[in-house]
Amino acid sequence: MLNDIFVAPFVDMFAAPDFLMQVLWEGLVSGILYALIALGFVLIYRSSRIFNFAQGIMVVFAALTLVGLHAMGVPAWICILLTLGVMFVLAVVIERVVLRPLVGQPDIILFMATIGITLFLIGLGEIIFGGENKVMITEELGIPTGSVLLEPFGGLLILEQKDITAVIVAALLVVGLLIFLNKTRMGRAIRALGDDHQAALSVGISLQTIWVLVWFIAGIIALVTGIAWGARAGVSFALEVIAYKALPVLMLGGLESITGAIIGGLMIGMLEKLFEIYWGQPLLGGNTETWFAFVLALIVLLFRPQGLFGERIIERV
């Protein structure tokens, strides 16, 4: 028993390093996607202290809109622009209808409101686009679909080109976002609002504009995530479950930290794959991916209650 837990998995890892690398690569790619969703959460949380549960369904909604528009015969790049337009309208409507009347309410009320948004979008999406699984328009968007074969240690490592594209696009998105947040006026305004609502308002930052902007950026991130994940697994409402995967990423990385979201996402993506392959399947009957990330995050949180990169929780009485 102890041998199975502490020795055998590592022996397996060293015996087949190419397989280990394949597992890590798969984990890295799904980790990137978790990180992207977590990024959407973090942005909204930082600027408004809203725990946005609807980020997962926004991913589905963006991907469905893209595919649905293309099915109507619109060229791919116009589809992207139109989808961005839809996400912008969505951001404005959410801010106007839901968030504005709820400014200043306790966190849990706003959280519930985002679950309400989630249900609404699920119903709307099913009515407009139907519930069946759809194929992402990978080729029309110019994403390469071949695969790269590498041969490290005399083994075989298969890297899908669309995964490589996803990694590169995600990296570019993160860099762009960091530059936007740190170097531009709007980005500074977002961070100021996150630090202190009243102080930000008093120097003339518009709460409404910034919230629309932040939800729109979250929509853009959702679209990118939707394309990348849809290219791997098709577009359907099952995508929504990956939103749950982003939650332990947030815990692990800290709710406020962009770096935390990315590092947490990559860590969880890789560790859960490793655990599933080397411990979960042989010892626990498989499918451990549903809870491993949560338990890992829980253990880390016991030692660091604010996550690895979160802001230190200071309480005053």
Binding site: V98, L119, F120, I122, L124
Partner: peptide, 11 residues
Amino acid sequence: LNIMIIGSLII
């Protein structure tokens, strides 16, 4: 429609 209506009623 049910899901949609419940979502909007919650809000």
